[in-house]
Design a binder for these strands. Structure first.
Lengths: 239, 239
DNA sequence: CTAATAGTGTCTATTAGACATTATTGT
DNA sequence: ACAATAATGTCTAATAGACACTATTAG
């Protein structure tokens, strides 16, 4: 029987087999009527030259948390600072990385295209790809699976929340938000129904400004605090 | 420029700082009108003597996946084989374990009390604790947080699915299922409304048998394949 | 004016909640 | 008969979807 202190002094973590811990991030945006995902060209082995998610190894010296690691690696690989992150899932197996038993924590976020398109252009091989284009691409590791998992998470959220509005740069119109929802769930939504949801939710503030493109000017809104926790009392129906 | 093969041959994973990877499981059941969680007494340092979640280190020799590690460690620590598992979240930081940077993948499941109560009794210090009891207990690491996270996940699921039925041993009555939902969301649900949900969902099979306790006999049901993916068209309302 | 898009009015079908009523058992 | 619980009948309020209608801009 040893004390906890004695136990910890004699504890040698390096005696354990190494598990590689990586953090990968699926960043989505909405541009050109489509949901797009951010991919970067892998500069180093393994899977060098393939497109993959921005991410990398956990750095014990720099990262105080998994989320911090995700933010750091996205910034390093794509020059972007994600506005928020949510965890999607963690995958791990002997087989998924040739370097050994590997665990990858997948994060995801939606972000406005405008706030990042210029940064992206400065990073070699980084870019936004629509999910359609993505089908014909050979992605690194199991990143395609991760993307699909993250996408279906947001697809679900589009049915019961206004979280998809995070893909837009405020201020935006109700139609803008509706278009993002439509792109996610793959069907059109009645304008009137959508407006009713916006009004009863009270998670958007009418800025008082309008934006005119073609036709009648549209009211501009900003998201309120609490948008991410709001849930529709009745979901959008998916037949 | 090296080839991928040459890169992998010279790659030494053990040169990286070790990250401790553990898998912890939050098992819930329904007994005595309450939701209860399975805790085990920690036999080794650190946090020795405290109650905590069944779990343990990933074992690269035994575990082919994270979920396999969860199943194995629950079996080892509590003598129970969980019927299924779903991932709740992954936590990781420098601070949460005194042995070093540690990552813990949290799994959770609901299971029938009947199929496990006898096994539990044979394991020293393992037992089911109601969430009420749990408030006054000192739990290991950040396990209390993990339990609350898993609980609120199932609380949400109780509002939009029949997943809580997994806490019951088939065959069960509609009232049994309703009681589990009520325990999770903390309010009573109209019997008629609940029965309507059951009927329209078509995820339960009427066995034709009945069970009599006090009063009119109740029809017995079994879950169908697909119960876990079914979603209510309209959620149970939480005021 | 017309085309285009934003926003409203309003009808209808659906359905959750509420609660009364009937059904079936044990004592 | 009575208590207890299961199951059904039915009314009502809320609301999503549908779609017609009005409003406001550009050209």
């Amino acid at each position: 029987m040893t004390t906890e202190q004695a136990f910890l002094q004699s504890y040698d973590a390096s005696a354990f087999p190494v598990v590689l811990v990586t953090v990968d991030t699926v960043l989505f945006t909405f541009h050109d009527h489509q949901i797009k995902v951010l991919l970067v060209m892998r500069a180093a082995h393994p899977e060098r030259g393939k497109l993959g998610l921005p991410g990398g190894f956990l750095d014990q010296n720099q990262d105080n948390s998994l989320q911090a690691a995700a933010v750091r690696s996205v910034k390093a690989k794509a020059g972007i600072e994600p506005p928020y992150l949510e965890q999607i899932e963690t995958v791990g197996s002997q087989a998924r990385d040739p370097r050994g038993w590997s665990v990858s924590v997948i994060y995801s976020a939606l972000m406005p295209y405008e706030t990042c398109c210029t940064h992206i252009e400065t990073v070699e091989g980084a870019g936004w790809y629509s999910l359609k284009e993505l089908e014909n691409l050979d992605l690194a590791f199991d990143h395609r699976t991760a993307i699909h998992k993250a996408f279906s998470r947001y697809q679900q959220k589009a049915l019961y929340s206004f979280v998809p509005a995070y893909a837009l740069k405020p201020p935006f119109t109700i139609t803008d938000v509706r278009k993002v929802h439509e792109a996610l769930i793959g069907k059109t939504i009645q304008r009137k129904s959508f407006i009713r949801r916006v009004e009863s939710s009270q998670v958007f503030i009418d800025t008082g400004d309008v934006r005119t493109e073609r036709g009648r000017p549209a009211c501009l809104y900003r998201p309120k605090q609490g948008l991410e926790t709001y849930r529709f009392v009745r979901n959008i129906e998916m037949d």
